[in-house]
């Protein structure tokens, strides 16, 4: 049984600035990281591997340098990693991305039955939360988003029961397998790779599939297959902050000022 974890290599957005002139992201010298939610997805699949002996595969679509993210996934303990990389895949929105990923998952399921697809709840660069659901719909998988706990997993009965973390409440949902789940940070505490695993991962080759392998209609992938385009990126205007009193020499006084201000704006009740 295979569990496939979809990950994305994203720029470390805390370090990304928007160029005020061109309104584009300044990515020069910005390191890439695994989308933080996807790290939790990897961890969850590794825990399933530890418990059920599942075969874990990390899957990513991206430029050749996204290999680094997959190597990290291998270092953490994933069994294998597949990179979907082709110029034809470039410029994709969530519709065409989920198309490519779903096709690859279908291909991966040929030699080993698919049990579960795990994705992070969303990426920190796109923030759409659409790719996971897109994959589920295309492959007819049960769609379980915002999971913060897998309550039970029964491969004989083909059932999965999860807890979804919604605003202000939890929801326990049961569904049939195979399923696609997206996970939130609270689901687990990711592990840290051991040095031997890191060194081994550094040497392991990553399987790369281009469109010659996937054979997708070029009108359904990349820029051509993407109905969405970004017309502008900008930082929202923010009101200037204000220094209240002199906290260093008079901490009590400035705290009082702050309290008064919060009370005045109805942000605190006395």
């Amino acid at each position: 049984m295979r569990v496939i974890t979809c990950i994305k290599q994203v720029p470390d957005t805390t370090q990304v600035k928007i160029d005020p002139v061109t309104n584009t992201l300044v990515r020069d010298g910005i390191p890439f990281i695994i989308n933080p939610y996807d790290v939790h997805a990897i961890e969850e699949s590794l825990r399933l591997k530890d418990r059920f002996g599942l075969h874990t595969t990390a899957l990513s679509m991206g430029p050749p340098n996204a290999e680094a993210a997959l190597k990290r996934a291998l270092a953490l303990g994933m069994d294998d990693a597949v990179l979907l990389s082709d110029r034809a895949f470039g410029g994709a929105d969530t519709l065409s991305t989920s198309n490519v990923l779903a096709t690859a998952i279908k291909k991966l399921s040929q030699d080993r039955p698919l049990g579960l697809v795990i994705c992070g709840k969303q990426t920190i660069d796109g923030d759409t939360a659409q790719v996971g659901p897109g994959i589920a719909v295309r492959l007819g998988l049960s769609q379980l988003t915002l999971v913060d706990r897998i309550e039970s997993l029964d491969f004989l009965a083909n059932r999965i029961r999860v807890r979804r973390k919604l605003e202000g409440r939890y929801e326990i949902v049961e569904a049939r397998l195979p399923a696609m789940i997206t996970v939130v940070r609270e689901i687990n505490q990711p592990r840290y790779p051991t040095v031997p695993m890191r060194m081994q991962a550094g040497k392991s080759p990553i399987t790369v599939w281009d469109n010659e392998t996937l054979k997708l209609d070029t009108n359904t992938i990349g820029l051509k297959g993407s109905p969405t385009w970004v017309s502008k990126i900008f930082s929202p205007e923010r009101d200037k902050g204000e220094m209240l009193g002199d906290g260093l020499s008079d901490p009590v006084g400035s705290t009082r000022l702050l309290m008064e201000r919060l009370l005045a704006h109805d942000l605190l009740t006395a």
């Binding site: 840290y192 051991t194 040095v195």
Partner: peptide, 15 residues
């Protein structure tokens, strides 16, 4: 740290 990746949980973020 290197062989077991076993350490107090606070250190993951630090590393």
């Amino acid at each position: 740290v290197e062989m077991e990746a076993s350490f107090p949980v606070e250190l993951i973020n630090l590393f």
